[in-house]
Design a protein around this nucleic acid. Sequence first.
RNA 1: GUGGCCGUAGCUCAGUUAGGUAGAGCUCCGCGUUGUGGUCGCGGUUGUCGCGGGUUCAAAUCCCGUCGGUCACCCCA
Length: 419
Amino acid sequence: MASPSFQAPKGTRDILAPQSTRQRALIDLFADTVERASYGEVSTPIFEDIGVFLRLGESTDVVTKEMYDFEDKDGRHIALRPELTASVVRAYVQHRPALPWKVWYEGPQFRYEKPQAGRFRQFTQVGIEALGTSDPELDVEVIWLANQFYERLGLRQVSLLLNSLGDPTCRPAYLAALEAYFRDHVGDLSEQSVLTLDLNPLRVLDSKRPEDQAIIDGAPLMVDHLTPELAEHFGQVRAGLDQLGVSYHLSPRLVRGLDYYTLTTFEFAADALDSAQNAVGGGGRYDGLAESLGGPPTPGIGFALGVDRILLACDAEGVFDAPTIDPEVFVVDVSGAHVALELTADLRNHGIRTDRAWDNRSMKAQMKVSDRSNAAFAVIIGEDELAADSVTVRDLRGDTGQQLIPRSDLVAYLQNQLG
RNA sequence: GUGGCCGUAGCUCAGUUAGGUAGAGCUCCGCGUUGUGGUCGCGGUUGUCGCGGGUUCAAAUCCCGUCGGUCACCCCA
């Protein structure tokens, strides 16, 4: 070990196979799920003008404490994206695609947090956003898609929490009532929650401190303060979910971390995870966001799902194994004539996953490596085979033994054997 | 950001309580087969004991700092 020794920065990880293969398979499954519903992929920059993210809210840690921001060489104030909804809405405002605009995304995001299980400084999310209609059936489609994705992964212990957060016509009155209530009980609240109360009374509802629970349980609820129109919207969302057989728990104290959310709000919790970070997805409406980013008033709804946490949940439930990338065939060449070079190329060109040994090692050593590769067959070339323009194919898994195959028949023979 | 626990070979870990110049299993490499793996037997390689200071005749072991991991709060996906 030489003097400078480096490791991946705090809160970041190198993801090696088979985990990387598994993550890609998860993203492929997500893409398949949402592309069936006509969501197209959108790919936005990993960094943005910091102003894009400042619209997310002044009372959220994601914006105030956790952004990676810096000035570039021309003095632009840049931030690594801490989430993707703002970037997508920025792209919408910039390009003005036809409405409704339905998109999906995947990619890394960055938050300067203290790492713990299921929480990283660089983490991957997949998600969708749909802009351009307030139709409650769109809310249902969005929630159903997330639910569908969890089901296709094989997860069974994911529960959906549902709430409505109102909108600017009715939330201020509710916030005033909520704050007044907490002020009346400020002596019994935890110190943390008193601080939170000054920033955003709504977020006090999210406290997990035991001493706050009794007070939170008695707090006024947003759902009781919705305007008739919004109550109707929420009712239609619930009716739609019922119609599709999507089960959910009404969670009148559910709030979200980012300030842009309105109306329908939801979160998915992995019950198989016993850690504190068991939220594997969340989302909702954000009907004012496009306007705040300089666009026309445009309703929108979407969700983001945490890939790392979903994979932890898959581990906990023992589902969604990594697909294999083991070779089907392993080439052992002791001919001294560099046959492996063209043989592997030939097999790969015919779509057969093929690996080989290196360094001119002994046959014994090469056979050992071929066994370890999990390949089904070893293709062996020595001097005898070379002279006969043939190869020996050895069955490494079954009991077929081995046989001499003419070189010209090899591909067909293997394709037949491999099914 | 606050607090608890942890950091020894590639991996999993013992050794830390009562300081005395580093161990096990697995992996890996070779041999037992002169062209054949998986089982078995034999032999072998690998560590600045996370890093930096300090105490001591002597530190993996005690002290301080630091980096990293982990758990809870917080935050959130």
